[in-house]
């Protein structure tokens, strides 16, 4: 072996070194998922199956007039595309929302979380790498499942503003990242992910109005749902792709709510996540589960 060393990373890491952490984490995650190919394929078909259930129910109940009844409450008769957008957006929300929680849990179980905490790389760069990976995965799942869904249900994706919808999706990812860190902090504390996710998945899909407009809710619940970032994103995407008005009536208000959430929620999420990490290290340690 070579002579005495003072170790790497003792000096303050350069932006290049931090970028290297982000890129390496991203590449590692992509390599791992590429070795579970079935999981990726299933992820792209799941939203189509998820949307098929209410679409078929709608056709069974409403028959040829299903679109007409639907229009009365939503402003569009294209209930198939409405459901499909909801299901695909929910799929993105699911991937993004649980990403930090699942990541923490998975790394705890494999014993690699302690190894990550032993290294001098800042958590924010590791989390950024994990997030970019999830973002890519979520976008791929969204686009492919939307295309598959449009073919299966015979709907035209290009009748609305698709680029606008993708822009909204990107903006909506930021508060989701923040929520994801809040959830990750919770998982780090309670050491249990599956049962929490099982319950929360239904709560989130309900609040988002995946298959119905949130105007159907009673007033208090309606406003609680309206400021929940995934709901705002879902509502704005539908408005963009189906040429509808948003829940808030004006585009400016919807965008302002989304920008406010994009600026504040990630900061709050990261603050709570780092605080919880330190608090857990004061107690039993990050690797215990």
């Amino acid at each position: 072996m070579e002579g005495h060393s003072h170790g790497f990373g003792l000096a303050s890491p350069s932006w290049r070194a931090n970028l290297d952490v982000v890129v390496t984490v991203l590449i590692v995650r992509l390599k791992v998922i590429s070795r579970y190919k079935g999981s990726l394929v299933m992820e792209m078909f799941l939203p189509v199956v998820f949307a098929a259930m209410p679409i078929l129910l709608g056709v069974a109940v409403g028959g040829a007039n299903a679109g007409q009844y639907f229009q009365a409450n939503t402003g569009t008769s294209n209930f198939k595309l409405y459901m499909l957008i909801g299901a695909c957006t929910f799929s993105v929300v699911s991937i993004m929302l649980w990403l930090v929680g699942y990541w923490i849990r998975r790394e705890q179980e494999t014993g690699t979380l302690e190894s990550i905490y032993l290294a001098p790389a800042r958590q924010v760069y590791v989390l950024t790498g994990v997030t970019i990976y999830s973002l890519l995965r979520a976008l791929l799942a969204f686009v492919v499942s939307l295309v598959i869904g449009s073919l299966v249900f015979g709907v035209n994706l290009l009748e609305g503003n698709v680029l606008g919808a993708i822009g909204i999706l990107m903006l909506g990812m930021l508060p989701l990242w923040g929520l994801s860190m809040l959830f990750g902090a919770f998982i780090m504390r309670v050491k249990e992910a599956n049962s929490v996710i099982n319950v929360m998945t239904w709560v989130v899909s309900f609040l988002m109005g995946v298959f119905f407009p949130i105007t159907m809710f009673p007033p208090l619940l309606r406003w609680a749902a309206a400021i929940f970032p995934p709901t705002v994103m879902n509502d704005a995407m539908r408005a963009s792709m189906l040429n509808l008005s948003t829940f808030f009536g004006s585009w400016y208000i919807s965008l302002a709510v989304m920008f406010a959430a994009a600026l504040t929620v990630p900061l709050v999420g990261y603050g709570v996540f780092t605080f919880t990490g330190r608090s857990v290290r004061r107690k039993e340690g990050v690797g215990q589960y």
Partner: peptide
């Protein structure tokens, strides 16, 4: 503390990056 779906070399490269 190792990722089972990665090779030994990929593991070492990953942790090397975390140590800058």
């Amino acid at each position: 503390g190792l990722y089972w779906k990665l090779t030994g070399r990929e593991n070492l490269d990953y942790f090397g990056a975390l140590y800058h």
